[in-house]
């Protein structure tokens, strides 16, 4: 039975870049364990289907076949810099201004 220990949820929250206080981690670990328990049945269902048919089941990532789409290389109207920056938390010289991206130990 899969279970998500609190430490693993804390690790996933760090990967997902979400600060999470301890109380929230405990509650979420409990809920996620129940959810993963319920959805994990897909693994067994696929194994049974493959055993019954003797064939591997191909994966489907998308309901319709995907192909890359390109457009002619012509100049079209795009957003102005002012429009693109209008909702920016901070901007400077027609650019997004962001906090420093390297930490102390980088």
């Amino acid at each position: 039975m899969p279970a998500l220990p609190r430490e693993e949820v804390a690790h996933l929250a760090r990967l997902a870049r979400i600060d999470m206080p301890d109380a929230e981690l405990d509650h979420l670990a409990e809920q996620l364990t129940a959810i993963v328990d319920a959805v994990a049945s897909v693994t067994g269902a696929v194994a049974r289907a493959e055993a019954e048919s003797g064939q591997p089941v191909p994966a489907t990532s998308h309901p319709v076949p995907l192909r890359n789409v390109t457009r002619p290389d012509v100049v079209v109207r795009t957003l102005t810099a002012a429009d693109a920056l209008a909702a920016a938390p901070e901007s400077e010289d027609d650019k997004f201004r962001v906090p420093r991206i390297l930490g102390e130990d980088a």
Binding site: L4, Q31, V42
Partner: peptide, 28 residues
């Protein structure tokens, strides 16, 4: 937050085939 963390888990190495991979086969 629940769904982002659940998705991060389903896509993490070691679980990818069992969860996301199986789910895509169910889709078929």
């Amino acid at each position: 937050k629940r769904r982002i963390i659940l998705g991060t888990y389903a896509l993490s190495s070691g679980y990818y085939d069992a969860y996301y991979g199986s789910a895509q086969k169910i889709r078929t």
